[in-house]
Computed example of a mutant assay.
Amino acid sequence: PSGKYFASLLFDCENQTAEKRQAEKFLGMDFSMHGMCVFSTGERAGYPMFYRNAEKKLAREQRKLSRCEKGSRNYQKQKKKVALYHEKIKNQRKDFQHKLSHSLAEDYDAVCVEDLNLKGIAGGLHFGKGIQDNGYGQFLSMLGYKLEERGKYLIKVDRYFASSKICSVCGHKKKELALSERIYLCECGNRMDRDVNAAVNILKEGKRIYKKCA
């Protein structure tokens, strides 16, 4: 790791404000476009993608709104209906994230994640709707303060750490790994879901960071 990377880790350690307990139970978590995130345990968050599921219905209601005369009574009525759909999706997402973040904060002493540039991912790969529907950034904020309240840790691994390319069993690093490759295959015989492999690597790197800061 570079000197800049070490400096960022030291800064994070020195700026812990709440009294912390010793971490014993760790979890690695990797961002996923589908289902929000994957855990080092092999489990998936299973986020229902509320916006995606309601997208057709929303589009239909938006078309009805566009056909209404702007400013008319029907326009105002339909505009309110569309707004209520969006509010429902927002509340469903928030409720799911609150329950999941509460569960993780209760069960684990430290959760290790990648410090991702979500805006860059959304714009660069044209995944805007998927990122917005996931609400991963909002979820991390919820998880962070719930862990903090309990004297626990949200450990952020550098975004340039090659979590997807490294074999979580033997440590071999692939030069290239296409997005289409959903199973990680290594010459050591490791065959694992790509996202789970990345989550395990994030867990290991998070533990390393924790030991350095402790």
Rank of each mutant, 00 (worst) to 15 (best):
I155R: 07
G124Q: 01
K119I: 07
K174H: 11
K119V: 11
Y136T: 04
V113I: 13
L125Y: 15
G171H: 02
K156S: 12
K173N: 07
C167L: 04
A162V: 06
I131D: 06
V111E: 07
H172N: 13
Y145C: 02
L154S: 09
K119M: 10
K146S: 02
E149L: 08
C112N: 08
H126N: 15
R182P: 00
V111G: 00
L185Q: 12
L147H: 01
E106H: 12
F139N: 03
L179N: 10
I131T: 08
Y108T: 04
S168F: 01
I155C: 11
N117R: 08
G137D: 10
S103V: 02
V111C: 01
E176R: 15
C167V: 06
E148Q: 10
C112L: 10
K146H: 03
A105H: 09
S141M: 00
I183E: 15
A162F: 01
G123W: 12
E149I: 01
D158R: 00
G171N: 06
E181A: 11
C170K: 10
A110Y: 10
Q138K: 10
Y160Q: 05
G130D: 11
H102C: 12
C167D: 07
S180G: 05
G124P: 09
S164Q: 10
L179K: 14
L185K: 14
D107S: 12
L116E: 03
E176Y: 14
L143V: 03
K165V: 05
I183A: 12
R159F: 11
A110S: 09
A110R: 08
Y145D: 04
L179Q: 13
Y153A: 11
Y136M: 11
A178Q: 15
Y184C: 07
L116Y: 08
L177R: 15
K146V: 01
F161H: 01
R150Y: 02
G151V: 01
G137T: 09
L104D: 04
G130V: 00
L177E: 05
K165C: 03
